[in-house]
Amino acid sequence: MTLPPDLRDGLLQAIPSMRAFAISLTGNVDQADDLVQEAMVRGLAYIDQFQPGTNIQAWLFTILRNQFHTAYRKRRREVEDPDGGIAARLAVPPEQDGHLDVEDLKGALAQLPIDQREALLLVGAQGFSYEEAAAICGARIGTIKSRINRARTRLADLLGVENPEDIGADRVLKATIFNETCTR
């Protein structure tokens, strides 16, 4: 196949991000690589439908996200885990003392409902705008915002974070909070 150079570069550049998104979304590297591979193959097969001048990364993410949902629905029927109970048990519970680490965060992410997890990742990690995330998820902007809000609140809950200090030393932040709480 021959691709215009800008399209080819767009595809190449999107792959590491698609993989980071897929791993964060599924919590499983093999499954994530399957998704990225399928999305790439599919993207190439349907490259004619891509509108030049629009965001190819968002376009590829849309494909990947759709693949994920198709696979996810199928797997849910096979495993019969409608409440996500297995996923929750597989997640690593955070240590109650000591600092939050990456594994804690991954475990907590895995416990978020899928719609909240993908919205949070698209905007909060990947850096898509609310508009782009809404287009990728086929949802309204307001819905995306509210999902992200709930995701953030739930993450803090799951991780049992009561204090920003638990996340990492940050003297400035700490000072700010103490000042704020005093004036309240």
């Binding site: 993989r19 980071a20 920003p164 996340i167």
Partner: peptide, 24 residues
């Protein structure tokens, strides 16, 4: 305490981006 809570959420956001960046 909304200020403290938003500080926690900002901090979690940083952690999330750091995790994501490592994956990329």
């Amino acid at each position: 305490d909304p200020r403290a809570f938003s500080a926690v959420r900002d901090k979690l956001g940083e952690q999330l981006r750091a995790m994501y960046g490592k994956l990329e």
